[in-house]
């Protein structure tokens, strides 16, 4: 019984991590259709911001985590203006190549600044005991905060002026502009929001993983597969895909090993692409 609870909790944490590392991409790629290959580096920047804020500046962990989206948002503004904006009307492959280049540049800068395996920060909070097992508070906190962020984002896109304009600008930019939407400004905000979300994701997972310059690249592949299998409903679809893929990957890893868990994630995602090319949410009546 205890074992089942522990397995379930662990799966929940994995799902949360997958969702947190995919959310920024869900906004930038899922909603805006910008192929941002540098998504992983935004996760990495977020994770490093938190680590540095805790270790060097002595910030409390929660404040350090909140710094991560701010730093990423600033980087995001620069990236949008310098690289993404000139490419809005170009072929998607061009965006893909430029953001890949950006990813490499940011990766190398991180290596130059932090080295290949910088020291990390410990998991904050204590532990709970479930039978003979211990589970950290933080790993329980992650799913809760993931749900909170998703709910807030849903409300933002569903009920605010900005959210409506952002969705309209992505759905049909010409028509939105004719109705009075300043599409460029809205797109900048949405891109920056996506970067900030990636930063927040990176900051939140930083106590749970080994933070290195390559940390983003180990998540970006999964993040893309999650958003692609999620389909057009960029928030709830991504959440469903995270649940399915993260759940399967985690349970298989616990039963066998991490290797088989990742393999299961990959195989499930590929099978889903074949069976449902439009993604899990292709036929939903809510595209959010």
């Amino acid at each position: 019984m205890d074992e089942i609870i522990v397995i379930a909790l662990s799966a929940l944490t994995s799902i949360a991590i997958l969702m947190l590392t995919s959310l920024g991409l869900a906004v930038i790629f899922g909603l805006m259709r910008i192929v941002n290959m540098a998504h992983g580096e935004f996760l990495m920047i977020g994770a490093f911001t938190t680590t540095v804020a805790v270790r060097a500046a002595g910030f409390p962990i929660w404040l350090a985590i909140l710094c991560a989206p701010l730093v990423c948002a600033l980087v995001g503004v620069f990236v949008e203006l310098a690289f993404i904006r000139p490419l809005y009307r170009r072929r998607l492959i061009d965006t893909l190549l430029v953001t890949s280049g950006l990813s490499l540049i940011l990766y190398q800068i991180a290596i130059n600044v932090f080295g290949t395996s910088p020291p990390g920060i410990g998991t904050p909070g204590g532990f709970v005991e479930i039978g003979s097992y211990t589970v950290s508070h933080y790993s329980l906190f992650l799913p809760a905060v993931t749900v909170l962020i998703t709910v807030l984002l849903y409300a933002l896109f569903k009920s605010t002026r900005y959210g409506l304009l952002a969705r309209a600008a992505s759905d049909n930019p010409d028509m939105a502009s004719v109705l009075g939407v300043e599409v460029r400004r809205v797109n900048l905000s949405t891109f920056v929001l996506g970067c900030a979300l990636a930063g927040l994701g990176g900051g939140l997972i930083s106590p749970m993983v080994a933070v290195s310059p390559g940390v983003g690249q180990s998540y970006v592949g999964q993040a893309f597969m999650t958003v692609v299998t999620g389909g057009p409903a960029f928030l709830l679809g991504t959440l469903s895909a995270s649940t399915l893929l993260g759940g399967i990957a985690n349970i298989v890893s616990q039963l066998f090993t991490t290797l088989w868990g990742l393999t299961a994630l990959l195989v499930t995602a590929i099978v889903l692409v074949r069976l449902l090319p439009g993604g899990l949410s292709a036929n939903w009546s809510r595209q959010l």
Partner: peptide
Amino acid sequence: IVTLSVTLILYTV
């Protein structure tokens, strides 16, 4: 996207 994602996941695997 799929080919690159698969590549990066293989890296982790």
